[in-house]
Design a protein around this nucleic acid. Sequence first.
RNA 1: GCCGGGGUCGCCUAGCCUGGCUAGGGCGCCGGCCUGCUAAGCCGGUGGGGGCAACCCCGCGCGGGUUCAAAUCCCGCCCCCGGCGCCA
Length: 461
Amino acid sequence: MPTWSVLRLLRENPEEYKEHLRKRGLDPSLADRARELDELWRRKLQEVNEVRHKHNVVTRMIAKARDPEERRRLIEEARRLLKLREQLDAELKRIEEERRQLLWSLPNIVMPDVPVCPEDVEGVPIRFWGKPKVWRGHIEQFKEQTERWGFKIDYEVVDEKPVGHADMLEYVLRLGDTRKAAEVAGSRFYYLFDDLVWLDIALLLYAIDYMTRKGYRLVLPPYMVRHRVLMGVIDVETFKDAIYKIEGEDLYLIATAEHPLAALYMNEEIKEDELPIKLVGVSPCFRKEAGAGNRDLKGIFRVHQFHKVEQFVFAKPEESQQIHEELIRNAEELFQGLGIPYRVVNICAHELGAPAAKKYDLEAWMPAQGRYREMVSASNCTDWQAYRLNIRLVRKNMEKEFVHTLNSTAIASTRTITAILENFQEPDGTVVIPKVLRPYLEAFPKAPKDAIHPVRREKTG
RNA sequence: GCCGGGGUCGCCUAGCCUGGCUAGGGCGCCGGCCUGCUAAGCCGGUGGGGGCAACCCCGCGCGGGUUCAAAUCCCGCCCCCGGCGCCA
C-alpha cells in the first residue's frame, strides 16, 4: 500500500512535520488541523462501514428469503438501515472532502540541507562559474552577491556601462518590438525578428541535442492540460498566478512542459527496473505573471510566453537526490557551453514552492543589471506530485510506493537571450553568438553565424 | 458536429439483454512446494482504504439517478474504434 510521505509523517511524527512548516515560514497549526481531520475521518469511516456492513448483510438475506412475510420484514429493516447510512454517508463525505482539501494544501517536506534564511534572502550561493564582466559602478553590489557568501570570484572590470537587454533588443539591434506587441496582445508580449528568432531556435536545438545525447527521451507534449492535471503538479497559489484558461472548456495552457510530462504516467504503475525515466520536453510556456507587479516590465526577461527545453525525471526515492544533482549539472554544462557566467543557488526553505522539497536555481550574471538573475530552476518534488497524480512505483516484491519526480529547465529561450545580449555585447553594439550554437545555425543561409550586428543589413520580407 | 459500437481488478477476456450467491477464466508478475540446477507442474497471492488483529468497507471509464439490492437499468460527461460531415 503506497502511503504519501507527508501523510505518513503527519501520522507518525507530527512535530517533525511542523518543523518543516516552520522552516517554510508557514503556520505549524496547519499540521494539527490536518491530523485532527485525518483522525476524525478514520473514526467516521469505521462508523459508516459498520452500518454499511449491516445493510449488506440484510440485503443478502433478502435475496435468499422465500417467505413473503419474512421478505417484507427484511426490506423494512434494510430501509431503516439505509436511512441511517445515508445520513452517515453525507457526514463522511463532507469530512472526506474537507480532509482532502486540507491534505492537498500541505506543502512538501523540506530536505535537511535546504537553508533556512531571513525573509530578505532567497537563496544561498553554493558555487560560481565564469569570469563575470562587472561595470565599475556595480562592483560593490557584485561583492554583495559573491564575497558576502564567502566566494572570491575573479571578474573583469568594465568601464563603460553595458546596455540593458531591453535597449539592445529595441534600439541597438532593433530586432524586438515590445511596444507593438503591447498594442496587439498586451504588456509582457514581444515580437522578435530575424537573428533573434534564429537565436531562439538555435538555443532550443542546442539544449535538445545535448540532452538527447545524454540519453534523455525527447518529448513534444500537449500544450494544454485539464484542471485535474494542474492540481496534480502545482499548488493553488501558483495556479492563480500563472495559469491561463481556455474559455468554456476544461483546458489550461501549460506554464511549462513539466506539467504534461509529469502527467505522462498519471494513474499508472511503473516497475522498479524501468526507473529512472528521463525525459526532455520542448514546448512553449504560457504564464500570467499575475503576482509580478511592475517587475521586469521592460524587455523580454519576464514574459507571458516563451520556449523552453525542460528536463523531467521519474525516479526511485533512493536515487532522486543524486538525480537532482545531475539535473542542475546538466543545466550548468549548457551554460558553460554558452560561456555565460553564473552561480548556483540553494533556494531557502521559505522560497520553495509547495511541490519542491529542495530547489536549485542557476542564475546568470547580467552585466547591465549588475545582478545574478534566474535562468534555470531545478526542483526535487519527491512524491508530492506523484501522490496527487497517483503515479506508483512497483518494487520487485510487488510492494508499492510513490515515485519521485524531478524537473529542471535546460534552456528557457527568452531569458537566455537576455543573458546573451548583456554578456556578449561589444562596444559597437555587436552581439557575439556563442560558438556552441554554430552547428544549429549553419544549416540556414539567412541565419547569423558568429555575431548579431546592430545595423540591419538584410531587408525583411 | 452527427450516427453506430465500445471502455471490466497490470494485459486479454466472461458476465450486461433477463438486477441478488465471493466479478469467473487466460496471460504476466510475486511468493511457496517439487527438483542436482533450469524448465514444466502444483499451491497461494496479485485494485484502493480503515483496523493491532479477526475482519470490514469501497471498487467494473467519471459523476449522478432508480432499487432493500446495480458491472448489469436510466441520465450527463470523458476517452477509444468505425462511418458521415467539416477543415487542412
